[in-house]
């Protein structure tokens, strides 16, 4: 594969994209997990799928948007879905988690309808569901790089506000932090990262890349910054390792990455158990 990396552009695209996603998804995932929003990632990924199906449908039936990357439509849907979740969370103040199944099923329903109108697509859609190494184009890579820069700047600049909001929302609001605005920006970032990650790991597995490395990290890290650091390291290990394995074994990269992430998670749980027993 090493020699392939120099030879084939698609491998370079996949690898560079994977490395970026390996940083982005767990980085944002830390905030998602500690704010107990893990399932939002799932809901948004399904809405992203609807966007992609919509884009492919337009391309097939009407011939418009033919040159346009389906990723754009996916991102648009994802962001709109995020806005709806926020609205619904305000409508159902006492059942905030209700917003998630509503949006998730809405996304899947829309996707199913778009796919049926289009009379099915070619294998393309499968690669969106489970991720694919060969599907990543140079254009995808540029888009994802752009998102990466945006997200990292936003996290650095808003770090202390995001931390306070995650740790103690009431206190954040009482001390005058613009909680609504920051939460809004945060949800937009999540929507973008989900759309970006989906090329490699696929829609159905995107949320795992945001949650599994964080779940492993929380077991053993001390402090918030260390939790972020370990999450990114675990995420990166799973992505890079998963891409190598999937290339050699000809497995779907998304599935391989997720299984590696689960292995890391199990390892940290065992490590913690052994350490506790030794003390």
């Amino acid at each position: 594969m090493i020699s392939g990396l120099f030879q084939y552009e698609f491998l370079q695209n996949a690898f560079l994209t994977g490395i970026i996603i390996g940083v982005l998804a767990p980085l944002l995932g830390v905030f998602v997990v500690v704010r107990r929003l893990s399932l939002i990632a799932d809901a948004l990924s399904h809405v992203t799928l609807a966007g992609i199906a919509f884009s492919l449908l337009l391309e097939k039936k009407l011939g418009i948007l033919a040159g346009l990357n389906p990723l754009y439509m996916g991102m648009t849907f994802s962001v709109i879905g995020a806005l709806f979740i926020e609205r619904l969370r305000n409508v159902y103040k006492h059942y905030q988690e209700l917003a998630i199944p509503i949006i998730l099923s809405g996304g899947i329903g829309l996707s199913a309808i778009f796919i049926s109108i289009a009379d099915g697509f070619n294998t393309d859609l499968f690669s969106y569901l489970f991720g694919s190494v060969s599907a990543v184009t140079r254009m995808d890579l540029w888009i994802i790089m752009g998102i990466c820069i945006l997200v990292i700047i936003a996290i650095i600049v808003l770090y202390k506000e995001l931390f306070l909001l995650s740790f103690d929302e009431e206190h954040a609001r009482a001390s005058g932090v613009p909680a609504k605005l920051i939460h809004f920006i945060f949800i937009l970032l999540v929507a973008l990262v989900i759309a970006a990650s989906m090329r490699i790991v696929g829609i159905l597995l995107v949320s795992s890349l945001m949650t599994l490395p964080v779940a492993a990290s929380i077991r053993i890290a001390t402090g918030f910054k260390q939790t972020i650091l370990y999450s990114v390291l675990f995420g990166e290990a799973a992505v890079v390792g998963g891409l190598f394995l999937s290339y050699y074994l000809d497995w779907a990269p998304g599935g391989t990455i997720v299984l590696l992430a689960i292995l890391i998670l199990i390892a940290t749980i065992l490590y913690k158990k052994i350490r506790l027993r030794m003390v």
């Binding site: 931390f163 740790f167 929380i218 890290a221 402090g223």
Partner: peptide, 12 residues
């Protein structure tokens, strides 16, 4: 007001 499993140090 907070979840005790939150991964943050006293300093943070």
């Amino acid at each position: 007001s907070f979840n005790t499993g939150f991964p943050a140090t006293v300093f943070e």
